[in-house]
Computed example of a mutant assay.
Amino acid sequence: MKRIIITVIIVAAALAGIMFLLNKNKAKNEAQTAVVAQKNAAVAVRADMADIREVNTQYITNGSFSPKQEVMLSAEAAGRVRRVLVEEGDAVRAGQTLAVVDADKQSVDLANMQANYENAKADLARYENAFKTGGVTQQQLDQAKLKVENAKNSLKSSQLSASDANISASFAGLVNKRNIEPGTYVSPGTQMFEIVNVSTLKLLVNVDEKNIGQVKVGQSVQVESTVLPNQKFNGVVKFIAPKADASLNFPVELEIRNNASNDLKAGMYGTAYFGSDAKTQVLTVPRTAFVGSVSSNQIFVIKDDKAILTKVVSGRSFGDYIEIISGIEKGTPVVTSGQINLLDGTQVEIIK
């Protein structure tokens, strides 16, 4: 009996010890789980500081060169091309004949008008002789003179129509395309020559709203081309769009005088440098700090390990950095990656 009691006591003590250990482990596990849950509640982000940086105040933007003048010359009358007087690449002057076209209808009309004019002059001569002898009245003589004048005007009109059949350059430039050969039959509207003038070119660029205030009509702008790295050209601002596009950019047109050898070609990629190449100290943040886009003017700043959505006033763009005019101060940590997972007040953990 005594042995049974001792055995029961030992078993009870063992069970009590096991329960104590289990409860102790449970409390430890719950504490560890709470710590893990607390850590997992923080969103991992990358961050940088709002800081004073030395930046180049020159605004740089890109575009493509296009000719100041370009035209596709088309046939104005039907006919067969008798002669082609220029080749692709030839320089032409304003008014120069590029092709001679035999326009059948215009040729026949011209011959008829010439014959009518000669007949009217002969009739007038006879009427003038008859008038001297009293054979015709003054009224008949005046009608003969009017007939000559009408025939002369009709002849001039026919001569102009016949000359329209020939194709002439409307301005000085280069033949970029020639679409006809001798013997080609053309109809009104048939494209024959493309003429371009590259002695002066246009460069259309976009300037954002932060920098458009420093661009003025008549302003001199340095222009370069990536394919001509050792040459610099001078551009002049000729036009500033009064209205921005959907991206809040303003189209600006520059006019650039080509060099003597016309090294700049239409279609080349060009870079325009607005303002002087000067350095200045500016409060900036990385472009990636902005929520969505720079135009949103919203940034997550980190305070007490929390992401706080903050409204700022952004300024000029300097490549990877954006000027901050107001809203945050130097040394403020800002989120640069991971904003998509954040709400105002979200707990964050900064990762390298």
Rank of each mutant, 00 (worst) to 15 (best):
residue 267 G to A: 04
residue 268 M to G: 04
residue 9 I to K: 04
residue 84 V to E: 00
residue 310 T to Q: 00
residue 254 L to S: 00
residue 183 G to N: 13
residue 223 V to E: 10
residue 134 G to Q: 06
residue 122 A to V: 05
residue 58 Q to V: 12
residue 271 T to S: 04
residue 342 L to E: 05
residue 287 R to Y: 05
residue 337 S to D: 14
residue 86 V to H: 02
residue 321 Y to I: 04
residue 173 G to M: 04
residue 117 Y to M: 15
residue 4 I to T: 08
residue 281 Q to W: 04
residue 117 Y to K: 14
residue 248 L to T: 07
residue 99 A to Q: 02
residue 323 E to Y: 07
residue 237 V to M: 03
residue 289 A to S: 15
residue 262 N to C: 02
residue 293 S to Q: 05
residue 209 E to C: 06
residue 323 E to R: 05
residue 46 R to T: 15
residue 9 I to M: 14
residue 218 G to T: 10
residue 72 M to Y: 05
residue 146 L to K: 09
residue 171 F to M: 13
residue 64 S to D: 08
residue 275 G to D: 04
residue 136 V to Q: 08
residue 338 G to W: 03
residue 303 K to R: 12
residue 101 V to N: 10
residue 303 K to V: 09
residue 281 Q to V: 02
residue 288 T to K: 13
residue 216 K to F: 06
residue 81 V to E: 00
residue 310 T to V: 01
residue 155 L to F: 15
residue 265 K to W: 02
residue 213 G to E: 10
residue 8 V to E: 07
residue 65 F to W: 09
residue 307 A to W: 02
residue 30 E to G: 03
residue 319 G to Q: 08
residue 186 V to S: 01
residue 16 A to L: 15
residue 106 Q to M: 07
residue 297 N to S: 15
residue 108 V to A: 11
residue 271 T to M: 08
residue 269 Y to R: 14
residue 21 L to E: 07
residue 251 P to C: 02
residue 48 D to A: 15
residue 40 N to V: 08
residue 38 Q to Y: 03
residue 188 P to W: 07
residue 16 A to S: 10
residue 108 V to F: 05
residue 179 N to P: 11
residue 275 G to M: 00
residue 180 I to F: 03
residue 5 I to M: 11
